[in-house]
Design a protein around this nucleic acid. Structure first.
Lengths: 359, 359
DNA sequence: CCACGTACCTGGAACGTTCCAGAACCGACC
DNA sequence: GGTCGGTTCTGGAACGTTCCAGGTACGTGG
């Protein structure tokens, strides 16, 4: 058997008394967690064999395996991921850095990440940045300190230096379109320009000629959408018209002139902007889609809830997450070192906020 | 100085070659992470002093502290949370178990948890159960294995046995109303009955006498709301009327008879149900709130987006999270062992989906 | 000049696991 | 009966940190 290490040499207190492990009493005050050594003692084998058996390793007799699992169950043993990670140098965990938990876009990406991670035998831990750059950096640091085997950052907000530092320790993939992706970091994004192009094509098909791009953001995603819009409109021999404001709530004031100016279709940089436009039209008594068609971008949950249902561009969100994990594992497992930047194609979801241009 | 431990005695491979730590090359392929020993070597001090200095401990000379922080920066050193947690027996991390990331209710609770945890110097890790009981149990296990210092389970879905097992190792608080809260587990919930009572009072004030409770769920929260509704209605000398269906999309068919039967106000068990009712009314040409008032429950984001704006009962979501952390720390830090079950009071948010009963 | 206090620093032990080299056992074969 | 090969099992080392019981250096007062 094992040298019986003397315990509790350090402090004196020891949270809730030295209640014997085997009493099973006091479910309320967590007692000292049983370790592999406790299991070994109960099962009458060495710690090494317990470790091997519980991991399902080969070369363990049936009788030993049975005694060990019985002992583990009896004690309520759970292996300690900290110790395991420390000795193995990996945790089989992927970290996801979220900018904004409340954003369903992020949520769907997470679903893809979780699915792909589970397939590869990895667990997923989420860290939340709360739309705050400093906090994001802190959270990224926490993930790195926890030795996750890779990080998916769903955010274009994360500080470049923080990303670079993290990438020196563990593979990092950014989902979205960072302003300047640092070296050593992979990215996955949807093709904003192509998505806007599809929206324009849809409106052109419906006979619209006066299509205005309405944006409330200067971020790279909005820029890409705007470019795609401009390209598509010019491709049809028309002239791009862009309305850019700071906040969606300023749109109310702009809506009437917009309609008066002859616009028959609006392409918004995202769904929230589009909903604000629908609202303004409603208040002005402008029928949608009778007199005005509105297209959003992101196909968020509100798109299917508002009246009229919002035609919107759907990003392949779970697919973005799955791709991120693939990139991560290419680095972590296959040892790729060159940076990769993947772009996925979005898809237009027509609903009832778009209709034929008034003849 | 330190005995220079021979390294890499184990395997041969070693992911990306044994590139000297000090070259700073190859940002793409994460090299071996620098440890406290590397910092000690560079700074010319012992590992113990590095540890002390980086933790900001006392009794470190200014010169040593400066050399140490410089060395740590130069190497890009980050302490290893696994090792730290292992030796300290605590991680300064709280785990949050989420049933459904896409649910904004959960999200707001998380915000409260994060705030309170940060105040107490704890970090927060999220684990996501994806509305799947088995997965929730697994994720709960992961958190426990990671030795988080407490778990907030935002969910009434979690398996009782899994909760009980987790609670034997670390403090656990359930936010919501579990069917049977296991011994050893604290809970925080909002007072569903009181919330429904407030909604009824609001409708009575507006002169409504035919108020119907419409529900799409049999879960404890919906039951509590129903009870509150019934009590309040009876208290006003009226007779409760309840419409219970399985799914919100069945409401379309029920709406016309409901209105025909003389109902002038509907109280829904949650906002999604209420939105479905608004939709049905819209399709029937029943004006809201002119002919029918609708109240939701949860005050979710859609409530403020739909037309008309939905009157709804707001749960103190961040407060639920903060309370959960308080309960957690009472156990973890102050050593409380008796179970506690807290109930917080919700608040009605009147909007434009409710109005005076037709005279 | 020596004992002593103080400020600063150090090395070893410990945390709970995995990995590995080798020990113990056992039956079979020559 | 000894050797061999295989299966099953074991103990020590290692992971990277913190904690602690000391150690060293440097005044300072007697």
């Amino acid at each position: 058997m094992e040298r019986s290490r003397s315990r509790g040499g350090r402090g004196v207190s020891g949270r809730s008394g030295a209640a014997s492990l085997h009493t099973g009493r006091m479910p309320h005050a967590p007692s000292r967690r049983p370790t592999i050594l406790d299991v070994a003692r109960v099962a009458g084998v060495s710690k090494s064999l317990v470790s091997l058996a519980l991991r399902g390793g080969p070369g363990v007799s049936e009788s030993a395996r049975a005694r060990i699992t019985a002992a583990a169950d009896q004690l309520g043993y759970r292996s300690n991921a900290l110790a395991r990670g420390l000795v193995q140098g990996r945790t089989m965990l992927l970290g996801v850095l979220l900018t904004d938990l409340a954003n369903p876009y992020h949520t769907d990406v997470v679903a893809g990440v979780e699915e792909a991670a589970a397939e590869a035998g990895f667990g997923v831990l989420l860290a939340h940045g709360r739309r705050d750059a400093e906090r994001l950096a802190t959270q990224l640091g926490t993930l790195v300190e926890l030795n996750v085997d890779g990080v998916v950052a769903i955010s274009s907000w994360v500080d470049g230096d923080a990303l670079r530092a993290a990438a020196r320790r563990t593979p990092v993939v950014v989902v979205g379109r960072p302003e300047h992706p640092p070296e050593g970091v992979d990215t996955v994004a949807n093709d904003d320009a192509a998505g806007a192009g599809q929206a324009v094509a849809h409106l052109l098909d419906l006979g619209h000629r006066e299509i205005v791009f309405v944006t409330t953001s200067r971020r790279p995603a909005a820029q890409g959408r705007r470019r795609g819009y401009e390209t598509a409109v010019r491709g049809a021999g028309l002239t791009p018209r862009v309305l850019a404001v700071e906040h969606a709530d300023q749109l109310h004031a702009h809506a009437a002139p917009l309609v008066a100016s002859g616009a028959t279709a609006l392409l918004a940089n995202n769904d929230l902007t589009a909903v604000a436009l629908l609202d303004a039209a409603h208040d002005l008594g402008v029928p949608v889609p009778g007199r005005l068609s509105v297209v959003g971008y992101d196909n968020s949950t509100v798109a299917a809830l508002v009246r009229p249902r919002l035609t919107s561009v759907d990003q392949p969100r779970p697919e973005l997450g799955r791709t991120a994990v693939r990139l991560l594992l290419e680095r972590a497992v296959d040892g790729r070192t060159a940076d990769r930047h993947e772009v996925l194609r979005p898809r237009l979801v027509p609903r009832t906020s778009t209709g034929p241009a008034r003849p």
